[in-house]
Write a protein that binds this DNA or RNA. Structure first.
Lengths: 128, 128
DNA sequence: AATTAGCTAATAATCACTCTAAATTTGGAA
DNA sequence: TTCCAAATTTAGAGTGATTATTAGCTAATT
């Protein structure tokens, strides 16, 4: 499904995603967009996310096993994840990394992603 | 649930996992173990995986958005993933990597994981 | 105006995973 | 040994995220 029409629903979703660094789930997006556009359906959120994925305007993250998370920043970058609250934070520095040919198992490499795990400041405090 | 008893079901699951580098899903494990132990239930597979996770005898991977994958090798190591067939291969070399303090966003870092994406040999062939 | 293709909304369906409760098995105490 | 309580297994119900379906709507096209 190519994104041939920019409907008001899609515009609302795009506006919410633009510059968003929260890595929201589909449900998060649905709840946020519904505030401005109360009649929108969750199915439309999923449809729009599919369309955006196809044109590489959004990236699906497999970080959180409970639900997919979405990132409007599709440039290669890495993430820092709180193992308690599942907050995802962007890492802005480049992490130079090469996989030696001998370790590529015959794969044609197309990308990479580094995940750092830890406790975010809020969850460190709550831990006391 | 600590793994206090080694039941035949658990022994069969452990035997299947031992040395396994396929990164199977719960369903994969269920199907495999059922061949030798036909009356086993899928719930037992999930229960056993929980117990094994607790004692760090197995690691849950969030690589595949469709289903959790399990790795009996709990030593820190990284993975190579086929974006087509979702095959997961171990990377055996160390990839030295440090996140500068300035990029840690106040997190207390506890771990990291590198994922390389690509096309496995089979899927490269199939692509023609 | 009629046609058609794309889109939305509601809702049903699916699928992985978790929970529940009854039955069974186990290991240790008597 | 026999008995008991705790651990475990099982089947099946339940849950929650995601996908599929379908009728109706909208906008551009003929």
């Amino acid at each position: 499904m190519a994104m041939t029409r920019l409907t008001p629903q899609r515009a609302a979703i795009l506006e919410y995603l633009d510059g968003n660094t929260d890595h929201p789930s589909a449900e998060d997006i649905y709840r946020a967009v519904r505030r401005r556009y109360p009649m929108i359906s969750l199915a439309t959120v999923y449809n729009t996310l599919d369309a955006l994925k196809q044109e590489d305007a959004v990236m699906e993250l497999s970080i959180d096993t409970a639900r997919k998370r979405y990132d409007p920043d599709t440039r290669p970058h890495n993430h820092l994840i709180c193992t308690t609250c599942k907050r995802i934070v962007d890492i802005r520095v480049r992490l130079p990394l090469r996989l030696p040919k001998s370790e590529q198992s015959g794969f044609k490499i197309t990308g990479k992603h580094v995940e750092f795990y830890g406790l975010c400041p809020d969850c460190q405090d709550a831990q006391v």
